[in-house]
Simulated assay, not measured.
Amino acid sequence: LAGLGAYMLFVGIAGDPDSPQQAETGGITLFLLAALPLVAARGLRLGRRWSRGPALITQLMALPVAWTLYSTGGAMIAAAVALAAAAVAVSALLVNPTATEALGIGPGEQAR
């Protein structure tokens, strides 16, 4: 995503796109989407309770990508299976009671 964002920004600034404003906005949006998993991972590492939502959203976004790879067929099927397995496994770990307890989320927890 970051690479595509850089390309879109470059084309928007130095190239000749149909709409420079749209290319630049798209590039910035892709940079932000590329930063989301990194910010969520850092928050989880630091035990921040807000980070579970963005981490789950990232895993949910990976599932349609896996389906698209699977639909492509050929060698992409292996990549699709690996991506889907990783997304499902991480999602399961994020909602695991041990993880929710470590993040201070769940029944019986007091607001911090």
Rank of each mutant, 00 (worst) to 15 (best):
F31T: 04
P17G: 00
M61H: 03
A41N: 02
G43P: 02
A35E: 04
G53H: 13
G15Y: 00
A35D: 02
T58H: 11
G53V: 15
V39G: 05
L32D: 11
G47C: 00
L30C: 01
P54L: 07
I28L: 15
G47S: 00
M61L: 15
A14T: 10
Q59N: 09
R45I: 09
T25G: 04
L60K: 05
I28R: 13
A40K: 05
I28M: 15
M61K: 01
A40H: 00
T29G: 08
L32E: 14
P20Y: 04
P20K: 01
A41H: 12
G27N: 08
W50D: 01
S19I: 06
L30T: 05
D16F: 01
I28D: 10
D18E: 13
L38F: 08
R49E: 11
S51N: 04
R48H: 14
Q21W: 10
E24G: 09
R49M: 02
T25V: 12
L36P: 03
A41D: 05
G27A: 09
L44R: 03
T58R: 04
G43K: 03
T58I: 04
T25M: 13
R42I: 15
R42T: 13
P17T: 01
G43S: 00
R45M: 12
G26I: 03
Q22M: 14
I28V: 15
L33D: 11
A41G: 07
L56P: 06
L33A: 11
P37F: 06
P20A: 06
I13P: 00
G12I: 04
P20T: 02
Q59L: 07
G15E: 03
W50H: 03
G43I: 06
Q21L: 14
T29Q: 13
M61E: 05
L44F: 04
R52N: 04
G53A: 13
M61T: 14
P54D: 11
V11D: 11
I57R: 12
S19W: 09
P17E: 07
L36W: 12
A55R: 07
I28Q: 12
A23N: 13
Q59A: 06
T25S: 08
P54S: 02
M61A: 15
G27Q: 02
F31Q: 05
A41M: 13
A55H: 05
W50L: 03
A40M: 11
V39H: 07
S19F: 13
A34P: 10
T29C: 07
G26H: 06
R52A: 10
R48T: 03
T25L: 14
G53K: 10
T25I: 14
L30P: 01
D18I: 12
G53W: 14
A14E: 07
A35S: 10
L44M: 07
L38M: 10
L30Y: 10
M61R: 11
P20N: 07
V11T: 06
I28Y: 13
T58C: 11
S19C: 08
L36F: 03
W50C: 06
Q21I: 15
L32V: 13
